[in-house]
Design a protein around this nucleic acid. Structure first.
Length: 281
DNA sequence: TTCCAGGGGTAGA
DNA sequence: TCTACCCATGGA
């Protein structure tokens, strides 16, 4: 099946995918040679389809291998690429700051996401206190061991259907396995509606509170997830942020100093950090 | 062996 | 609010 999705003029496919490492995590596969993003998706009936997306002169060309509902897949793709994110205000702000004009020119401000907050949450947990290589490996194992046909990202229900011990042994996520399992079990039993946290009616402070309440999600994780949810008011300060700012200032910096450096950008802190033009001044 | 990586939970001050 | 300590895993 082929179809096209119109893209906003302030959207850049390449910049959205380059914003962070998500495209390197299965079930995403990025093909540099053809500039195509692949993604395996589980359909409501439990089968899997392969999505291929590329920017074809201002429209998103989508190719789906397998039987799928176009409207459903289109909705998932819009979430993945943040096509509905209103970033005009962000760009307007960047225009007022001389060294941030390049963000507007480059059409930066969107970040690749998963189709569900659940998947983004698991992957954020998989980035904490570990190497990026291990994050890649953890994502791959989750899919191989618990995904639909070993190719889709596992549903919380699938993870909750095995024991915590079995999940930990197969996922090999270290102590993070218990966090992921707890979240999966809570969703599966209905005591946690994670996807509901995406609703715009939720105050940012409430969202942050609810995210930090999740096991395995602390200040860094909550800031990261809020960034993906279009609430970029916190810097997802991690070792990468600290080392970059450390180079900038020529001295070691604390978490607090990273926040202080970016807090002048107010509600846009997280995005400014993500796309900060370190080498262009 | 020891250290530690895109932090978080907990206890104690 | 801040610090110290521990945490499974696997590569260096």
């Amino acid at each position: 099946m082929f179809f096209q999705i119109p893209i906003p003029p302030d959207f850049s496919f390449r910049e959205t995918l380059s914003a962070h490492g998500w495209r390197q995590l299965l079930p995403f596969v990025w093909h540099e040679d053809t500039q195509t993003l692949e993604r395996t998706e589980e359909t409501p009936d439990g089968s899997v389809v392969l999505l291929r997306m590329r920017d074809a002169d201002g429209v998103l060309q989508v190719d789906i291998e397998g039987e799928a509902d176009e409207a459903e897949m289109s909705t998932r793709i819009r979430r993945m690429l943040q096509l509905d994110l209103p970033i005009a205000d962000f760009h307007a702000y960047c225009r007022t700051v001389p060294h941030l004009a390049s963000l507007v020119e480059n059409r930066q401000g969107r970040m690749l996401r998963s189709p569900t907050l659940w998947e983004d949450t698991v992957k954020v947990i998989a980035t904490t206190n570990t190497t990026w290589a291990q994050t890649i490996a953890m994502s791959a194992r989750l899919i191989e061991q618990f995904g639909a046909e070993g190719r889709g990202f596992p549903t919380p229900q699938r993870i909750a259907s095995v024991s915590g011990e079995e999940f930990a042994a197969k996922a090999r996520m270290g102590y993070r396995a218990a966090y992921v399992y707890k979240i999966a079990a809570a969703i599966a039993e209905g005591s946690l509606d994670l996807e509901a946290l995406q609703e715009d009616s939720l105050m940012a402070s409430e969202l942050r509170r609810d995210l930090i309440a999740l096991p395995g999600i602390g200040p860094y994780g909550a800031a990261s997830l809020m960034l993906y949810l279009g609430r970029p008011e916190h810097v997802n300060s991690d070792s990468v942020a600290r080392s970059q700012l450390s180079r900038e200032l020529g001295k070691p910096v604390t978490d607090r100093e990273v926040h202080t450096f970016f807090e002048v950008h107010g509600q846009w802190c997280g995005l400014i950090y993500t796309f900060y033009p370190w080498n262009a001044k």
